[in-house]
Amino acid sequence: MSSALQFDADTGCITVAGELTIYQANAAAESLRSAFASGSLRRIDLAGVTELDTAGLQLLLMAERLSAHGEDPVELVNHSQPVREVLEVLGVGAPS
């Protein structure tokens, strides 16, 4: 039911496992903030996302935007099927 955001400072990659919904939004935002603050955040791996809702989507949109200000752009990679489905419905540029 829950999800975990694991940040590996060496690779600069956050891996998300499980749901990314309003139930996890606060914790996820916190992880995102601290990862970003460390300065080494590069990628977010979405392969393990089993569910995504609007709250989760906002966080991802936010993360993408971080890249515009940071030195190296933050990338969303390995979109899982549930993530793709949401992005397709909303026309927010699902990766092909």
């Binding site: 939004a25 935002a29 709250a55 989507l57 906002q58 936010m62 909303l90 026309g91």
Partner: peptide, 29 residues
Amino acid sequence: GTLGELVSVNTLDDGLPRLDQLDPEACYL
């Protein structure tokens, strides 16, 4: 979408604040 065909959906995210001001449970879209 079940009423017919979604021709296009445009998500407006201009409302998103900065990360440090984000209330993760609020809707900005």
